[in-house]
Write a protein that binds this DNA or RNA. Structure first.
Lengths: 345, 345
DNA sequence: GCGCAGATTGACAGCGCTGTCAGGAATGGG
DNA sequence: CCCATTCCTGACAGCGCTGTCAATCTGCGC
């Protein structure tokens, strides 16, 4: 069955091609009876509008680009992260008859920025979703800006009033986690900070301090260790924290990888989790559920964030003014096995 | 800078649009001097051919679809798997000026097949890469066939002489792993079988038997436990195997998830790996490197397989006869910490 | 019954490119 | 030097659709 064109549908329905076009695009001002007639013809011929023709005539590409840090080039820890982003973006795209263009981008390589620009210019997406951590790298943002393409940043460090971005409540939910730990009776709650370049992760530290204050606990530098988001750095930080004469009874790491490092060290040292030490992370990576004990952490609604970003881009096409400000999608605690009452409670 | 069209390039270079088209498409029969002139004009104007116009005029979509089991719908364990497939397919696509269309497909849902067909009909990809385990589900294959789209299956259970497919040497490399275990002095090497529906995984069992034979070891039913590819089933299988009066000194699981289950049980039972028990898996999932001890396993060159599949589809356009048979890409052992000399060796 | 605003429809000109084909230039052999 | 080939180039007709705009139809108020 050769694919039917709009002409054949028009002939079968006894209308002009323009009317068929109207029906297909859900344009107003088509008489109900006509619409039905056309729809029957479409169904009968299994007509599918040709995207290329449509894009060409309408001067739209119906393409949304999703730019993210290439996990394959790295170590695949963030594969789950990317998959969630894709899922959300894909949902919004298919709802809007758009296509998702995936643009993995290994920012460690020299010419990627030029390549990215080139790719964007070739494919001409209508909008670009820029995922973290790329979203807070000025060079990347600039490269995209230079292409003149609309973009939405996900979890950008600081908001840019000129652009729309989607973020989560890192600070608030981190405070919540800290309060939760305090509510379990913990008085010495330590924190492992993340990579200094990752702005969103820095906010988690602020949240930790907020939570401490909310719980009437004093902040102490000695309960803070520096990490860089890797498992290894989590291990070092844990060793440092746990070797104190009065070690913390709870450790909250700015991301799950570091929390996993803490769990490893505790296991190695024979420290029982959660009886002697509570551990919490942030991100809810797949590994969080797979380790023993399963990690208490914070889950970001990544798919939903990406979906909103995509929707904003798609809808923003018709309303440039709307595409400003920051939208916050709230994360939530995932209480699992690695946290429990403070010893002696 | 408004995007330049082929007309402006033609004018600047002093040639017809057709000649510009020839240069852009690397068609033969263009004088070298003319080509250079056109190329300079293209560079000067930063001209990028409009894909939609090109697709429309050439009756090609320049789209390759990648259909895989939606990891987001499931549990994200296979996110790394999908990312690798995407990476490989993307590489082949960008080399061929094509675009990759990602088509996650949750086969557990009722109408996905119809949705998939619909999506394929709407987007009209030129070819489809069908990843495992979808590639050995007759329904899925049939759905794609009904759309009349060319497709390549990855790791299909049995080859179909009529179609091209890309697979890895599951059986041979499993035999190799078994021989490796035997070479470490193990005499009682157990095997945990995978999900019966997953054909490629079944071949690993055959390979295990081959390896046993190669190593002059007898096959014993008592050293085989059934799993279903999940971590949980690996745990059950391990409990069963290790509770025997003469337990195996090595366990080879048909996939990494089950091997992880084995490691968990061993840890729980206080069995030292690899001193008392060697454990091997298959797939080299991210978790394999993250657990302790790091898992000896087998790495499939997934990205390369996907790349070949994509290339076959792209090139096959010009040579339908070439798109037959099965291409084998070899996997390789990843020796890590979970395997060692048999006790007493 | 008349006139007008709004609803409905169609004619048609492109969108930017490639395929086709024909014409002119260059090349090689006799 | 002529003619057959091959090489190179351009004119032009679409590809299948949407935007524009004008034509027609409807309903409604008076």
């Amino acid at each position: 069955m050769p694919k039917a064109t709009i002409f054949e549908v028009a002939k079968l329905a006894g209308v002009s091609i323009k009317t068929v076009s109207r029906v297909v695009n859900h344009e107003p001002n088509v008489r109900e009876s006509t619409r039905e007639r056309v729809e029957r013809a479409i169904a009968k011929l299994n007509y599918r509008p040709d995207q290329s023709a449509r894009n060409l005539a309408s001067h739209r590409s119906h393409l949304i680009g999703l730019v993210y840090d290439d996990p394959a080039a790295y170590e695949l820890p963030s594969a789950g992260y990317v998959i969630q982003l894709q899922q959300g973006a894909l949902k919004a795209c298919s709802a809007a008859m758009s296509q998702l263009l995936i643009l993995p981008c290994n920012y460690r390589k020299a010419q990627v920025l030029a390549q990215l620009k080139s790719l964007i210019e070739e494919t001409r997406p209508e909008g670009i979703i820029l995922a973290a951590p790329l979203s807070n790298m000025p060079k990347v943002v600039r490269a995209i800006e230079e292409t003149g393409t609309a973009y939405v940043r996900m979890s950008p460090g600081e908001a840019n009033g000129e652009h729309y971005s989607v973020a989560t409540n890192d600070r608030e939910v981190s405070a919540e986690m800290t309060r939760y730990l305090a509510s379990l009776g913990h008085r010495k709650i330590a924190f492992i900070t993340g990579h200094p370049n990752h702005k969103a992760v820095a906010k988690r530290f602020d949240g930790y301090r907020d939570g401490l204050k909310d719980s009437k606990l004093n902040f102490s530098e000695r309960l803070v260790a520096a990490g860089d988001n890797s498992i290894g750095s989590g291990e070092s930080a844990a060793e440092e924290l746990l070797s104190q004469e009065q070690p913390p009874t709870a450790i909250f790491a700015a991301n799950d990888d570091m929390a996993v490092g803490v769990v490893r060290v505790a296991n190695r040292l024979g420290i029982d989790i959660p009886a002697e030490l509570s551990v919490a992370g942030f991100d809810d990576i797949a590994l969080a559920r797979q380790i023993f004990p399963a990690l208490t952490t914070i889950r970001q609604p990544l798919a939903e964030m990406a979906e909103r970003a995509a929707r904003a881009l798609i809808e923003g096409k018709n309303d440039a003014a709307a595409i400003k400000g920051t939208e916050i999608v709230t994360s939530s605690l995932q209480i699992r096995e690695s946290t429990g009452p403070a010893p002696g409670e």
